[in-house]
């Protein structure tokens, strides 16, 4: 898997990769998935979900390749990607921190957690730390309001948090990440 940063503004680069993109091989899992969905109407969103599941985001090259396979204009594909909050154009950190900003968490101090995380990590919402370890995002109710305020790191949920508990939690992942 290659993880090149997409260069959205660079026209020349865009043209070159567009032709190249047609030749890049896709992982078998994705190829099978596309084959299965190719003829179903309304397949684009499902395919984009699969791409994101595999790469963690939607690499530009893959978007191009899909444009060719599905015979849909690239602009339409990007129109869909940018409409939906869930689809990401940049590679996320290895540990994705999602701070719940649902109503219950907000009332119980979710915002304080977010500010503290921004301080601790030195990044804003949507950012990724330089070492590529953490990225920060907000989400809506994760369904554990009873434990509010809640954050999620990848798929692990941490509830009843105070900002004092954050350094320790981050430390655990940092250690794991460096090993």
């Amino acid at each position: 898997m290659t993880h090149e940063k997409p260069h959205l503004d660079n026209v020349a680069d865009k043209e070159i990769t567009f032709y190249k993109a047609q030749e890049i091989p896709l992982p078998k899992e994705l190829e099978d998935f596309i084959a299965e969905w190719k003829n179903k109407p309304g397949n684009l969103i499902m395919i984009l979900h699969k791409v994101q599941e595999i790469y963690g985001y939607i690499p530009r090259k893959v978007a191009m390749k899909i444009s060719k396979l599905l015979n849909e204009p690239l602009a339409k594909i990007y129109g869909v990607i940018t409409f939906y909050h869930l689809f990401k154009l940049n590679k996320p950190g290895r540990y994705k921190i999602s701070v719940c900003m649902g109503t219950a968490c907000y009332l119980k101090g979710g915002n304080d957690l977010l500010m503290e995380l921004e301080n601790l990590l030195g990044i804003g919402v949507g950012g990724t730390t330089e070492d590529g370890l953490f990225s920060l995002q907000t989400v809506r109710c994760v369904g554990c309001c009873g434990l509010a305020p809640v954050i999620m790191i990848n798929n692990d949920v941490y509830g009843n948090l105070t900002k004092e508990k954050l350094p320790e939690i981050l430390g655990k992942y940092k250690q794991e990440g460096e090993e």
């Binding site: 309304g42 969103i45 499902m46 984009l48 979900h49 409409f83 939906y84 909050h85 869930l86 689809f87 809506r140």
Partner: peptide
């Protein structure tokens, strides 16, 4: 099943 993608 069809999945949503985070748009209220």
């Amino acid at each position: 099943l069809r999945l949503g993608a985070g748009a209220f």
